[in-house]
Design a protein around this nucleic acid. Structure first.
Lengths: 339, 339
DNA sequence: ACGGCATTTCAAAGCGCTTTGGATGCCCTC
DNA sequence: GAGGGCATCCAAAGCGCTTTGAAATGCCGT
């Protein structure tokens, strides 16, 4: 059943039927009702390919997925997908994933924009002066950044959490508990979220006349193994830190293992605060010593990104508004006053 | 730059240019070269929307993503995505994710097929007599199942690992080490992979005259927490098992925690074998007691699925061939002879 | 010199929708 | 009763590609 058949059936022109269905004002309410009724009754659905060709709109949002033999997709990404689903389900909004060589994402960005494959883009885990953000801006396609980039010459719409505030508050709490030697086990520090987190830790320390010593800061891809390695190195040093702040539960897993290997009892010998992105499959309250965390759901952010992207596509949103979400500090058993 | 402009420029008809570019035989080699040269030089790229409208082919593969407020996307999914990227990158093959209400995926399947949004589908984590598989088969769209369904009236193409063999071999090893009371902590047992694994354990036990007692089998969504709960329940029972086989590293995490809470030393008091899907962020060799595992990379399977899907789209593959991949049994420190 | 047969090229008709630029009819005003 | 304004509706022209059916071209044998 296509438009032509439907219009023939209704003895109306395709124009009128199309307009009736798309809510244009220049069609009487009565015909509109006739049309929508008939459309529903016959299960008419406009062919998206035809519509796309005519309008240039794709009705989909895009994500360029960096891949490569030595590139692993972050498990945090599924949380984003869950969130996207929370919004997109019921809105018939699809996401097209375009795998790209991590070393040359630009080609893929250009391709999907030139091809009009998607109406808007989602960009995640930005770097400083992120090229993808600059490119999307330049190409003029609507987009939303999940996270923030710094050092760009223009404003852009984003959703981010208050990483600096979260890590500041966590560190301040540790300092208030008497910790002088606080270490940070961070994620990849070319990404802005890690930069902000480091900034937060530094600020909290300096507010009490303390410093984050270079040897007390580690940054690596957020895996269990890297958490373990970093913690071993920190904790075996001469002036080992008495408290660690880390960027992911995955790393926390490794840190706990390292502490155990070194016969350190938490929180007596080591206090630990981790950031928690809210995974359903690994929860901070279920660590052998329940973890104090800075908590912010990626899933919730994903839903919001989808919502704003949809708003941008339909023209309900424009401009470069950035949202910064506050982060909860959830205190559990993994921290205590310094001995 | 579109076809019309290009053909004008070359003083050829659109027909000829189109044919030259698409490798039809009825165009002389010389003109073909002229055309492809000019196309490259001017960066001509056929508009996919137009092509899609004309041919009905989308050039994309699809995945209907079950979502819902209480539905969490499995972190295993990112491994699949990495694998997909391994193949799709460089082939300009995109994946469209269509979020669907987990309780009504059929509507979404029908929509994306009716709309010709994708040329082929990927179906994962099938159930017995899986409705999605039946539906895809009935709708006549090419698809590949990652995993297997049972009790369907027809054959279909799939890629699966030898779950039964893997768990059989793991269990047999434990039995050979003297274990009589072996327990299984499985994933959701409405999914076929879990059914096969249980079958493998049972078969190995019965080969030695042993049985898998009902109280020694647990099946839940594969999370740390569920692993912990299941292990607690098993290990606190009267005739506690001396060995456990489990379906995921995530659950193994919880099992190890439970053992520790109960002051059981591994492998002295408890042997553990886990299935390992090969995550880069959590590795069995980096557990405090390195885990013996049945190992099979989801990522590799993802790449293969993408490859076969592409082959089906271009007509290079058809029929209902199923691939069953062998699984490695990797022995590490978490198992030992029974005391 | 001419018909027959490949080979190569083309004009035009879709694919199914949106949208431009009128028509048409009706009511109201002066 | 002419003219303007408004509400409805329509024919037809795209959007950029593929593909059908036919035409032009060149070559061969007779």
């Amino acid at each position: 059943m296509n438009l032509k058949q439907l219009s023939l059936m209704l003895e109306l022109s395709q124009t009128t039927v199309s307009r009736a269905l798309n809510g244009y004002p220049e069609v009487s309410e009565e015909t509109r009702r006739r049309v929508t009724d008939a459309a529903k009754r016959h299960g008419y659905r406009p062919n998206p390919s035809a519509r796309r060709l005519a309008t240039g709109k794709a009705g989909m949002i895009g994500y360029v997925m960096p891949t490569g033999a030595s590139v692993d997709i972050d498990p945090h990404f599924v949380e984003f997908l869950s969130g996207l689903g929370d919004y997109a389900r019921g809105h018939e909004l699809d996401l097209v994933l375009s795998p790209a060589d991590a070393l040359d994402e630009e080609t893929t960005y250009r391709r999907i924009v030139a091809n009009k494959q998607v109406d808007a883009l989602y960009i995640s885990a930005p770097y400083s002066a992120d090229k993808r953000v600059a490119l999307a801006h330049q190409l003029g396609i609507p987009f939303i950044v999940h996270g923030r980039s710094e050092g760009l010459e223009f404003d852009y719409p984003f959703i981010d959490i208050d990483n600096e505030g979260a890590f500041h508050d966590a560190t301040r709490l540790l300092v208030q508990l008497g910790h002088k030697r606080v270490a940070l086990i961070n994620g990849d520090d070319t990404q802005t979220f890690a930069i902000f987190r480091e900034r937060g830790v530094r600020r909290a320390l300096s507010e009490s006349g303390l410093v984050l010593e270079p040897k007390n800061i580690r940054s690596e891809v957020m895996t269990e193994e890297n958490g373990y390695r970093a913690a071993r190195r920190l904790l075996e040093a001469a002036d080992a830190p008495t408290a660690i702040v880390c960027s992911s539960l995955l790393m926390a897993l490794g840190i706990v293992r390292a502490a155990r290997d070194l016969n350190l009892v938490m929180p007596r010998d080591l206090s630990l605060v981790s950031h928690d992105d809210v995974f359903h499959w690994l929860k901070p309250e279920h660590f052998s010593v329940p973890l104090t965390t800075t908590r912010s759901s990626i899933r919730a952010a994903g839903a919001r990104v989808a919502e704003r992207l949809a708003a941008r596509i339909s023209g309900l949103e424009d401009g470069a508004r950035g949202e910064i979400w506050p982060v909860d500090l959830v205190v559990r058993g993994s921290i205590s006053g310094v001995r």
